[in-house]
């Protein structure tokens, strides 16, 4: 079991890599068969990834006897979960609206996040590492199952985090679709669309897709923040304390609330709202990653948290 767990992760990583490259070839050659292969690789990657997570939970809970362990408690696991939920969201989007070219953007984003999960330990200790073997050791080290700090030993951990990631993943996909929108909009406004424009989807369906992703992610984000507040009460004895993470979660919430307001009430559409959704994802990333270096309480991932 212990041997199988990293193998499954590697398999998922390889499948995502293959999917991304196949999507690039698809964008270049426009052969439908390639897009089907790439999508199949994403589905297979997600399947391996889910199995990996399940197995990791089993190893942590049953073999290591860690009572509160969930497989999303350090940087590596958390990025890995983020990537997985993006993969699932992508599959759901492809099932409802068949636009394979989006794979080029979404799967690349997924791949970057997952690659980051593997390499982040290198950033902080790059100077101490010498030679490939030490680098590899550091990567392996970061993939071992961690002990949970006391504040995280709660069943809320199993609920709050996946809910937040579900919301984040839909914002991530909305971000990737937004990039596609801006490229296509620029192409058509230029009055001289290039060949590339031909292979991108039309503007209005893209705009609708971004709206639907955010309209789906926003209530889930709201739920996640409320659950977080409830957990904060259990852990620290108060619902809200203007900790950096809490503050930034609120800023994220407001950014997407503004998006929805502008779109539904002020009738904004197209480029302006798309830029809002892209800014929104920037805020998400800061809340998720940047804040760990600011927050005293939520710095679980940077080792600062208490």
């Amino acid at each position: 079991m212990r041997i199988l767990e990293p193998i499954l992760f590697n398999a998922a990583y390889l499948l995502y890599t293959a999917a991304m490259l196949t999507y690039f070839f698809y964008a270049w050659s426009k052969k439908e068969s390639l897009s089907r292969m790439a999508f199949f690789a994403v589905v297979a990657g997600v399947a391996c990834h889910v199995l990996h997570l399940g197995l990791r939970a089993y190893v942590g809970l049953a073999l290591d006897q860690l009572r509160w362990y969930v497989p999303w408690s350090n940087w590596f696991e958390s990025f890995s979960l983020f990537a997985l939920v993006i993969g699932i969201t992508f599959i759901a989007v492809q099932w409802s609206v068949h636009l394979p070219i989006l794979g080029v953007f979404v799967v690349t984003l997924l791949w970057i996040i997952l690659s980051f999960s593997l390499t982040y330990p290198l950033f902080s200790q790059w100077e101490q590492l010498q030679g490939f073997s030490q680098v590899w050791e550091a990567v392996k080290q970061s993939r071992t199952i961690p002990q949970l700090m006391p504040a995280l030993q709660s069943y809320w951990m199993a609920i709050h985090v996946p809910v937040m990631f579900t919301a984040y993943a839909s914002f991530a996909v909305a971000f990737a679709v937004g990039i596609v929108y801006l490229i296509q909009e620029k192409q058509i406004k230029s009055k001289n669309p290039s060949d590339f424009s031909q292979s991108l989807p039309a503007l209005e369906p893209l705009d609708r897709m971004i709206y639907r992703l955010i309209a789906w992610g926003f209530p889930i984000l709201t739920l996640g923040v409320i659950l977080g507040a409830r957990w904060a009460y259990d852990a620290w004895g108060r619902y809200w304390g203007w900790d950096a993470k809490e503050t930034w979660a609120l800023i994220t919430w407001f950014t997407y609330a503004i998006y929805l307001h502008m779109r539904l009430v002020a009738n904004w559409r197209g480029r302006k709202t798309v830029i809002l959704s892209i800014v929104g994802f920037g805020v998400v990333l800061f809340t998720y990653i940047g804040v760990n270096y600011l927050s005293q309480l939520h710095g679980f991932l940077s080792g600062k948290g208490s």
Partner: peptide, 23 residues
């Protein structure tokens, strides 16, 4: 090859642009 790709009449260019905006 791309020998038969890209609209080559004013009408079909207009249609393909419309499809790139509205789907």
């Amino acid at each position: 090859t791309r020998i038969s790709q890209g609209a080559i009449s004013v009408g079909s260019v207009a249609v393909s642009l419309a499809e790139k905006i509205f789907g």
